[in-house]
Design a protein around this nucleic acid. Structure first.
Lengths: 206, 206
DNA sequence: TAGATTGTTAATCGATTAACAATC
DNA sequence: TAGATTGTTAATCGATTAACAATC
C-alpha cells in the first residue's frame, strides 16, 4: 500500500473514533459515507475516497460495513500490530505518559524507562524500574525496539536522538521543544506544546 | 488584521523559533527570505508572503530585520499579550503542565487549578492550591479568565466544557481524548495524543 | 423494478511555486 | 551603477468538491 499523507491519516483516525463511539452506544452494522461526512463535517466523496484508499469497499444502496472499516483503519494505522517502545526522561511529562492507560488501544507498549539522573535510576514507576542511559543501546538492540519516546530537556534531546538513531530505532516521538535532526529513514513526530499555544494566542489576541 | 490560517500560524512559529535560535548563537541583524527558506525547507516566496501578511516589510538587497520580524510574530501569535488561564484536572498530565516552566515565554500563565476529587482539593501544586469545582465559575467571572486547560478524564470533559462555556471562556485547550462540542465563538484546540500515534503506527507498520 | 449509495471521472478551489519588475 | 533581494502577479500543483454512470 502506498504511503498515505498525514492529512488522510488524521481523517482515518477521526472516522475510527466516530465509529467506535457509535458502536459502543448501539448496534450499528453499516454506515454510509454521508452519515460519516455529516457527523464530521467532511464531504462524503472525501470519505469514500479515503476508505477506498485503504481497501474498504462499500455496497451500493447500503453503505460500508462498520466492522470492515474499523478493521481496515486499525491495520493501516498499525493499531493491531503491537509495538514495544522505550521512554527517555522520567520528569513530569514522562511520568504522565508512563501512567497513561490508553496507549494499549493503539498498539503501544512502553517496556522501559531511562534517565540520566542518578537519583532517579532504580526508582520504580508503575511496573517499570528506571534504567541508566548506559543500558539504552544494548536494550534497544536486544529487544529490537523500533520506537523511542523522548521526554528529556531540550538541551540534551539531540544528543539522545543521535544515540537512539545509532542504536537503530526507526521512529522517535518527540515531546521536547526542539526540532531534531535525524536521517531520512527515521520518522520524527514532534508534539511541540507551543504549536497549540500559538493558535490559542492568536485567537485570544485578535 | 485578517484571521490567519492554522498552517500560516504554524510556519510563523517555526520562523520565530529559528530566528530565536540564530540570534542566541550570534549577532544577526538581518535575514533574507532565502536563508529562512533554506533552513526550514520552505519556498522563499512563501516566507515573503507570510511575513507580508503580518506586516513585516523587508528591504531590497538586504532582507528583513530580525528584531522587527520577531516582534511582528510575537504580536500576531499573542506572545506579548499575556493571558491568565485555569487548569481543570490535576492528574499526571495536569501536574506536568502545571510544572512546565516554558509557558511564560508564550504569554501564558496558569493562575488556578481545579479538581473534583475531594482528596486533591486543598493540596498544593507548585505555587497553587487545588480548588473545588464549585469555585470554577465565580473565579473565571471575577478574574475574567479567557482560556481553560482541560486535563480531565474523557468521560467528564464535555460536562466541564459546558460549565466553562457558560462561565464565559473564549478558548479551551483540550488534552482529554474526546472531541468537544462548543459554540462557534469558542476556540477548541485539541491535543489528542492518538493523533501522533496514528502517524507513528502507520510508519512502523508499513 | 425503483431508488439509494458507491466508485470514479471531471471541475473547482486554494495553496504553493515560478517569474519578474521595482527597489535599495 | 550593478547586483541582490523584495513584493506581487501569473502559472502550477494538489486537494477538495461536484457530477453521474454503475451497482445492489
Amino acid at each position: 500500500m502506498a504511503r498515505l499523507r498525514r492529512l488522510v491519516l488524521h481523517r482515518l483516525l477521526s472516522y475510527y473514533r466516530l465509529l467506535s463511539e457509535w458502536t459502543s452506544q448501539k448496534t450499528v452494522k453499516t454506515v454510509t459515507s454521508s452519515q460519516i461526512g455529516e457527523a464530521l463535517d467532511i464531504d462524503p466523496t472525501q470519505v469514500r475516497k479515503d476508505l477506498a484508499a485503504i481497501g474498504a469497499t462499500g455496497m451500493g444502496r447500503v453503505g460500508f460495513e462498520v466492522c470492515e472499516v474499523c478493521r481496515a483503519i486499525r491495520i493501516v494505522l498499525g493499531f493491531d500490530h503491537g509495538y514495544e517502545s522505550v521512554l527517555i526522561g522520567t520528569g513530569h511529562l514522562g511520568g504522565a505518559l508512563l501512567a497513561y492507560p490508553g496507549f494499549a488501544k493503539y498498539g503501544l507498549q512502553i517496556v522501559a524507562a531511562f534517565d540520566s539522573d542518578q537519583r532517579k535510576i532504580g526508582r520504580r514507576i508503575g511496573e517499570l524500574t528506571v534504567k541508566p542511559m548506559s543500558d539504552l543501546k544494548p536494550f534497544i538492540r536486544r529487544r529490537k525496539i523500533r520506537l523511542a519516546i523522548l521526554t528529556t530537556p531540550a538541551e540534551v534531546s539531540q544528543k539522545v536522538t543521535d544515540r537512539l538513531v545509532s542504536a537503530g530505532v526507526s521512529a522517535i516521538w518527540n515531546f521536547a521543544p526542539t526540532s531534531l535532526a535525524a536521517p531520512p529513514g527515521v520518522l520524527v513526530r514532534n508534539e511541540h506544546i507551543a504549536r497549540g499555544l500559538s493558535e490559542i494566542g492568536h485567537h485570544l489576541h485578535s
